[in-house]
Amino acid sequence: MYEQTCDVAVIGAGTAGIAAYRAATEAGASAVLIERGPGGTTCARVGCMPSKLLIAAAKAAHAARSADPFGIRVSGVAVDGRAVLERVRAERDRFVGSVFDGLDGLPEGARIAGTARFRDGRSLTVDDHTRIAFKAAVIATGSSPNIPKPLHGLGDRLLTTDTLFEIPDLPGSLAVLGAGAVGIEIAQAMTRLGVRVTVIDSGDTVAGLSEPDLARQAAAIFGAELDLHLGARLDSATRDGDGVRLAWTDRHGHAQVTQAERMLAATGRAPNLDGLGLDAAGLRLGEDGVPKFDRRSLVCAGAPILIAGDADGWRPVLHEASRQGG
């Protein structure tokens, strides 16, 4: 096994990890960037980049249908779902490529491919080929979509933001579980692209809004475009023919059934921490399995290890991941 020593070992080559590596080297520290893949940052691959491209297409279709008040007559607006998604993927891949281009210039040996696991609070292994001793480490392993238990049996009929942009064509109908910022923006975009959309959420607001009047206005605006149900509980989800069948209870306690071609889970993301050997590193974990850390320094309790970006579950947005990584 190859043995290596560095000042800073960064686990994860997403937004936070890249920022951490650059900050370390710019400060004169020796650093390595460990990447399990696929890399390219969550934002560029499956987050804000492809979702905003989908929204741009939806906005174009919506504008064409809404041009009459300006004296512009547009008839027969047709959405080519395959072409929309092909463009989303092409532009998305260009964004991801630019991220990889920024990593290509790293010194030889600074970028290590594989899965990292702590041996103790001062060393880790990458697969079975490299052992790294470090003075400090940064956990920047990102996050993965949450899949609520009722959705586990849907197989390929279940979509997440990690898989949504890979489908070859737009579905005829889509049920969305979760009316947070991600769920509601995708739901509105899909609606404007001609997909019949139903959104179910157990909360009382959309997009995480907390100001009561604003939350009511937003619910009314989105509800005018799509089938929005707040304060609802999903009871079960099953495969049904070529689609899915959802049994749920509305806010008034009435049983409801929704059928759709595909289901989108938009219920947040969980930190990627499994398999890291956090116990071996001596880190103290919270009830959620995330290491306890100081929110000013991001240093974890128990070892010279920091945690940044989606991995710490604190502020899982792009600019915060970059700031925390630095």
Results as ranks from 00 to 15, higher is better:
Ala29Glu: 15
Ser30Val: 09
Ser30Gly: 13
Ala31Cys: 02
Ala31Pro: 04
Val32Ile: 12
Leu33Lys: 03
Arg36Trp: 01
Pro38Ala: 07
Gly40Met: 05
Gly40Val: 06
Gly40Phe: 06
Thr42Ser: 08
Cys43Arg: 01
Cys43Pro: 00
Ala44Gln: 08
Ala44His: 07
Gly47Asp: 10
Cys48His: 06
Met49Pro: 00
Met49Asp: 14
Pro50Glu: 14
Ser51Cys: 04
Ser51Trp: 04
Lys52His: 12
Ile55Gly: 00
Ala58Gln: 06
Lys59Gly: 11
Ala60Arg: 07
Ala61Lys: 06
Ala63Gly: 06
Ala63Thr: 03
Ala64Met: 15
Ala64His: 05
Arg65Thr: 10
Arg65His: 10
Ser66Asn: 09
Asp68Val: 14
Asp68Lys: 14
Pro69Leu: 11
Gly71Tyr: 11
Gly71Ser: 09
Ile72Phe: 12
Ile72Trp: 13
Val74Cys: 07
Val74His: 05
Ser75Glu: 13
Val77Arg: 02
Val77Thr: 14
Ala78Phe: 00
Ala78Gln: 12
Val79Pro: 01
Asp80Cys: 03
Gly81Cys: 06
Arg82Val: 14
Arg82Lys: 14
Ala83Thr: 03
Val84Leu: 09
Glu86Gly: 10
Glu86His: 10
Glu86Tyr: 01
Glu86Phe: 01
Arg87Glu: 15
Arg87His: 14
Val88Ala: 08
Glu91Phe: 01
Glu91Leu: 13
Arg92Ser: 08
Arg92Gln: 14
Arg94Val: 09
Arg94Thr: 13
Phe95His: 15
Val99Lys: 02
Val99Asp: 09
Val99Gly: 05
Asp101His: 06
Asp101Asn: 07
Gly102Gln: 10
Asp104Ser: 15
Gly105Val: 15
Gly105Pro: 05
Gly105Leu: 13
Gly105Phe: 12
Leu106Gln: 12
Leu106Ile: 11
Leu106Pro: 11
Ala110Lys: 01
Arg111Leu: 15
Gly114Glu: 13
Thr115Pro: 00
Ala116Ile: 07
Arg117Met: 05
Phe118Glu: 12
Phe118Arg: 08
Phe118Pro: 09
Arg119Ser: 06
Asp120Tyr: 04
Gly121Lys: 03
Gly121Met: 04
